[in-house]
Computed example of a mutant assay.
Amino acid sequence: MSRSSSAYLPKDWHGRLPAPAIYYAQHLGNLDQADANGWAPAPCPFHDDHGASLSVKLVGTKGAYRCDTCGNHGDMVAFHMACTELPFKEAVRDLIGLRGRA
């Protein structure tokens, strides 16, 4: 039985994710400096946000995020899924540069 390219995730995919600081800087236009704990504020892309109600964790490997207004939260993969409307495996493949490749 062959695996489709959309179903395949390499075993080391966690280690191949982009650094949260780089990812969020590319995907959030107005990302502020991180505080001492590594959290940086930004406007939330999931609702009409005129402030910076979203916080993203720029240090570590998971890239957590949370919005104090709409309650959206998760890790960098969940953020990418919400922004792109991709299912989990396709979102991971997109993040690690394998989307569209066999």
Rank of each mutant, 00 (worst) to 15 (best):
M1A: 11
S2G: 03
S2I: 04
R3N: 04
R3S: 11
R3I: 14
S4W: 00
S4Y: 00
S4G: 10
S5H: 03
S5M: 01
S6I: 07
S6M: 02
A7Q: 14
Y8G: 04
Y8T: 09
Y8E: 10
L9Q: 02
L9Y: 01
K11P: 04
W13H: 01
W13L: 01
H14F: 04
H14D: 08
G15D: 06
G15Y: 01
L17A: 10
P18C: 01
P18K: 00
A19L: 08
P20R: 02
P20V: 00
P20L: 00
A21E: 14
Y23G: 01
A25Y: 03
A25F: 02
Q26M: 12
Q26T: 08
Q26S: 14
H27G: 05
G29E: 15
G29S: 14
G29T: 14
G29R: 15
N30Q: 15
L31E: 08
L31K: 12
L31I: 10
L31T: 11
Q33L: 15
Q33A: 15
A34M: 08
D35T: 09
A36P: 02
A36Q: 14
A36H: 12
N37M: 13
N37W: 11
W39P: 01
A40R: 09
A40D: 05
A40Y: 07
A40W: 06
P43R: 13
P43A: 15
P43Y: 11
C44E: 05
C44G: 10
C44F: 11
C44H: 08
P45A: 13
F46W: 12
F46Q: 04
F46E: 02
F46K: 05
H47K: 07
H47Q: 05
H47F: 11
D48K: 15
D48G: 14
D49Q: 10
H50V: 07
H50C: 12
G51Y: 12
G51R: 15
A52S: 14
A52C: 12
S53I: 00
S53F: 02
V56H: 02
L58S: 03
V59K: 14
T61V: 08
T61F: 02
T61S: 13
K62I: 04
G63D: 04
A64S: 13
Y65H: 14
R66N: 01
C67M: 11
D68K: 11
T69W: 00
C70W: 08
G71T: 14
G71W: 13
N72M: 09
N72F: 02
N72L: 03
G74T: 08
M76R: 12
A78V: 07
F79T: 06
H80G: 05
H80P: 07
M81Y: 01
M81E: 07
M81S: 00
M81C: 06
A82C: 10
A82D: 10
A82R: 15
T84L: 02
E85P: 01
E85G: 06
L86K: 14
L86T: 07
L86P: 06
F88L: 06
F88N: 04
K89Q: 09
E90S: 08
A91R: 07
V92I: 04
R93G: 00
R93N: 06
D94E: 07
L95E: 02
L95K: 03
L95M: 12
I96A: 09
G97M: 03
L98Y: 00
R99A: 14
G100K: 10
G100M: 06
G100F: 03
G100R: 10
R101D: 03
R101N: 04
A102W: 04
A102F: 06
A102D: 12
A102R: 10
A102E: 11
